[in-house]
Design a protein around this nucleic acid. Structure first.
Lengths: 248, 248
DNA sequence: ACCTGAACACCGTTCAAGT
DNA sequence: ACCTGAACACCGTTCAAGT
């Protein structure tokens, strides 16, 4: 056993092994639990050994994002553009649901790695193949925003990140509800509509919300494509900073 | 002078003063520069003194977000719903542009404070007043996502967070461009279209992108409202987890 | 009772001393 | 030349000792 661990230990550290261990660690303990020191421990290595394969923690996080993006299924080029985009984005969604920490990690990245660019390029390519101009594709990509990575911000709740709300008794619950109805009538109405009565057991169907927004955006994009939409910038290229024109 | 600083020092610390100092500090040094210790130093106080007004750093961040949300202009109820939403969201945008750290801070919040809920309630109220059902309002709010706070993710660049890309000579630049064109043809096309030729000076007009997406979403929402859209969940409330129905 | 210095258990990263 | 222990300059937060 001591011998085996000795053999293990001699297996040379490389970037791939570092990144895979980091991803595994993040899956287990969340992104905040991933420290250089803890990762080193996981790899049965001295902390400084990691710096041989990664110049700083930021680079580690870049690499971790690359690893999860690698799990996204390749695009199905036989599909009609909208289905193709949807399939690709939903595949990304599968991935970020498997790796909950990936949302935060992706959002925090300030550097676009080749892997990131390649993925974005492929999504842009699906739109271009669907007859979108480069101009419109650009704006649609921005409008999709983080949804191209398969996630959208959680507006009301944050159920996926182990938050234990304080348990209150039924009376307290009712009082809270009354308070909520008085102070936040519109949110209350929304919650009531979403739960058909029992607001206390509110929980969004995140998947549905994601799809709703995705289709709203894609349908809107399609409409603009069909009416040959061009950005004001494209018409007058010298003008870099545009003030929004309400009449448009 | 020593006397004056002594008088200053005796001014009792309170939550308001703590939060305002924290916001000011974040404005100056960014959110990562805001540590309990550094904030204490700024307030000319021992670190532990802050914990009298805030139980943990998370609570400090909650409070900081509340402070900036307080700077958002009140809704103009005389406006037609779409303009009212736009005015409110653009006012929020002014605020998050003034406080660059606020995007990250808002995204990282896991707790919805009364101030946060009040703002969300007011946006929901504008939609409701515009004839949106509670059901549709709900989904539209989700679709707007972080755009209700006046920001959207930066997809391609991150110019606003002091990043100094390595300067390369003209020849290196040209080589990079060729490489980019070969590896990321669609992104390259986008960039070319956005800069009318000189891809090296690419920079998105973030304001325009924001407005484009906002209008795409609001126009799409209006269309759904006009056709009396109802969510499948609203029709069959027992069914909580919906699979997306392509035919819809 | 209130306040606070020191301490605890961590960080990411540098650097010089060891092989 | 490579590797690594110790050290540096930080964190957020606890806690016991001081007033």
């Amino acid at each position: 056993m001591a011998r085996k661990s000795h053999v293990r230990r001699r297996e040379p550290l490389n970037l791939d092994r570092v990144l895979r261990a980091a991803v595994e660690l993040a899956d287990q303990v969340g992104i905040d639990g991933v420290s250089m020191r803890r990762l080193a421990q996981q790899l049965d290595v001295v902390p400084m050994a990691i710096y041989k394969h990664v110049t700083a923690k930021e680079e580690l996080l870049d690499g971790m994002v690359d690893v999860v993006l690698g799990e996204i299924a390749p695009p199905d080029l036989s599909l009609e553009w909208k289905d193709a985009v949807r399939q690709r984005v939903l595949s990304a969604r599968d991935v970020v649901l498997r790796h909950q920490w990936a949302r935060t990690a992706i959002e925090s990245r300030t550097h676009r790695s080749p892997t990131v660019l390649a993925y974005m390029d492929s999504v842009a390519g699906l739109l271009r193949a669907g007859g979108f101009s480069a101009d419109l594709t650009h704006h649609v990509m921005h409008a999709l925003g983080n949804r191209i990575w398969g996630f959208s911000p959680e507006l009301f709740d944050e159920t996926h990140r182990g938050n234990t709300q304080p348990t209150v008794d039924a009376a307290g619950q009712a009082a809270l509800m009354e308070e909520a109805e008085r102070r936040y009538p519109h949110i209350f109405a929304i919650v009531m509509a979403a739960t058909s009565g029992d607001a206390s057991e509110y929980g969004c169907d995140e998947d549905y919300e994601f799809m709703f927004a995705l289709d709203l955006l894609l349908d809107g994009a399609e409409r603009l494509r069909d009416q040959q939409w061009r950005s004001p910038r494209a018409s007058s290229p010298s003008q870099r900073c545009l003030t929004y024109d309400k009449g448009t």
